Structures are given as structure tokens and as C-alpha cells.
Simulated assay, not measured.
Amino acid sequence: MYAWRPGMRVTAERLRAGRLAGTVDITPSTPVTNALYNGTFYRGEAVITFPAGVFTSPPVMSVTARSTVPGTVMECTYTSVSTTGVTVIVARSNQNSVILDWVAEQPL
């Protein structure tokens, strides 16, 4: 974030919030068998691309899953975060689509 000081002029660069948010719909299709989960679950991912110049360092991320079938989403997370994008990942017990809400914010 931009450091404000008393008496500074307001400019577009200083007003830039350094924050983006959005949603992505993922349908998990890759079957995974794991000893910790008694059976097969499904994983899916999506790549989110950030507009150029929004972030000067990799943003802090938050990801939340939404589902119309409670109790079937096992995990939602992200990886490979950079100033240009991030990969979001979801795992669930079936192959129904999941909407992920995400927020990316410039670190202080």
C-alpha cells in the first residue's frame, strides 16, 4: 500500500487500492484416492490472472468455497501466487461444481 503523508496531493496512483476480488466456478474432475479419506474424492483447479500493475509484490490471498450441498467440499486453497496471478484449488466428495470467492490484497 502507498504510504500517505500529511499535505500529499491526491493522485490516481495514490488512490489505487491494491485489492482485487472475484469468483471462479470449478468442477472437480480429477479423482484422488487417499488413505486419510476412505474412498475417492475429486480435485479441480483454475488459474486466475491479475491485470498488469495492480500488485508490486505477491498479494495476500483469501479463498472461500460456496456450495449448494453442504458438507461435500473438503478443501479450498491456492498455490503459485505471484504479482501476475494465482492458482486456486478445490477438493470435494463428488463432481458437482463449486464457486470459489477470492480476494487478493497488496501486502503492507
Results as ranks from 00 to 15, higher is better:
residue 2 Y to V: 13
residue 6 P to L: 08
residue 18 G to H: 04
residue 25 D to A: 10
residue 32 V to S: 06
residue 69 V to M: 04
residue 108 L to G: 15
residue 38 N to G: 11
residue 108 L to F: 15
residue 18 G to T: 04
residue 93 S to K: 02
residue 95 Q to N: 06
residue 10 V to F: 13
residue 73 V to A: 00
residue 108 L to Y: 15
residue 40 T to C: 07
residue 36 L to V: 08
residue 49 T to I: 11
residue 87 T to W: 08
residue 78 Y to I: 01
residue 35 A to W: 09
residue 42 Y to F: 02
residue 72 T to G: 01
residue 93 S to W: 00
residue 36 L to C: 09
residue 22 G to E: 02
residue 100 L to M: 06
residue 92 R to E: 00
residue 87 T to Y: 11
residue 81 V to E: 05
residue 103 V to H: 01
residue 61 M to R: 03
residue 86 V to C: 07
residue 32 V to E: 09
residue 33 T to H: 14
residue 91 A to L: 00
residue 7 G to F: 09
residue 98 V to I: 14
residue 63 V to D: 00
residue 108 L to H: 15
residue 79 T to W: 01
residue 87 T to G: 10
residue 9 R to H: 14
residue 49 T to Y: 02
residue 2 Y to N: 12
residue 79 T to D: 11
residue 53 G to T: 11
residue 86 V to L: 03
residue 31 P to S: 08
residue 32 V to T: 12
residue 73 V to P: 04
residue 23 T to F: 06
residue 7 G to Q: 13
residue 92 R to I: 01
residue 14 R to Q: 12
residue 10 V to P: 10
residue 14 R to K: 15
residue 85 G to S: 10
residue 67 S to R: 01
residue 25 D to M: 11
residue 14 R to P: 06
residue 19 R to N: 10
residue 2 Y to C: 06
residue 1 M to G: 15
residue 83 T to H: 05
residue 60 V to N: 11
residue 97 S to L: 02
residue 32 V to L: 11
residue 55 F to C: 04
residue 82 S to Q: 09
residue 49 T to D: 13
residue 71 G to H: 02
residue 5 R to D: 11
residue 66 R to S: 12
residue 36 L to N: 10
residue 80 S to C: 13
residue 88 V to W: 00
residue 2 Y to P: 05
residue 67 S to D: 08
residue 97 S to I: 00
residue 53 G to H: 12
residue 38 N to R: 12
residue 76 C to W: 01
residue 66 R to N: 13
residue 97 S to V: 03
residue 7 G to A: 13
residue 68 T to H: 06
residue 94 N to A: 03
residue 13 E to Y: 11
residue 54 V to T: 12
residue 71 G to A: 08
residue 29 S to F: 07
residue 14 R to D: 12
residue 59 P to K: 07
residue 94 N to L: 01
residue 24 V to W: 01
residue 93 S to C: 08
residue 105 E to Y: 14
residue 57 S to F: 12
residue 28 P to S: 04
residue 30 T to I: 10
residue 85 G to L: 03
residue 102 W to T: 05
residue 44 G to V: 02
residue 5 R to Y: 09
